[in-house]
Amino acid sequence: MKHPVVRIFAPILAAVALAGCQADSRQQILHMDKSQVALRSAQSRAFDTADTELTVRTIIATLQDLGFTVDKVDQTLGLVSATKAGNYVMKMTVTARPRGVDQIVVRASAQHNLTAVSDVAPYQQFFDSLAQSLFLEAHDVI
């Protein structure tokens, strides 16, 4: 026979543990945990090329290198979205858009399980791989 205190508090504990992860969905809609400038800076790099088509192809190849499968591609908008499952689900949206006449800005945004990724490290890893595949140096944008 369990102690009555345990019987009462065990479900409460479980509820608290679950509530800990239950973000208010209204907050979640427009939630950011970094400033817009800091986030864009972490997520963007400029490459010295004017070839958007080749850049999009290379983004797809890099995502394949990393084990992602593609959800959607739009060459006109320079957009690729892809998903990877391990013991997690990682979703990436990558865009390539011209900046001036001789540069392309690539921006990646990722979602890990239920949360948007704002850490710098995963983006750095992605751009390192992309720069290698493009044979180009990645420049900071902001």
Partner: peptide, 26 residues
């Protein structure tokens, strides 16, 4: 204190760096 730990652990997020690395080279 147990409840506090439970509340915090419920929201624990692992850094997703593993998702962008692979065992094999490109």
């Amino acid at each position: 204190p147990l409840s506090a730990v439970a509340a915090l652990s419920g929201c624990q997020q692992t850094t997703p760096t593993a998702a962008l690395t692979t065992a094999m080279t490109a």
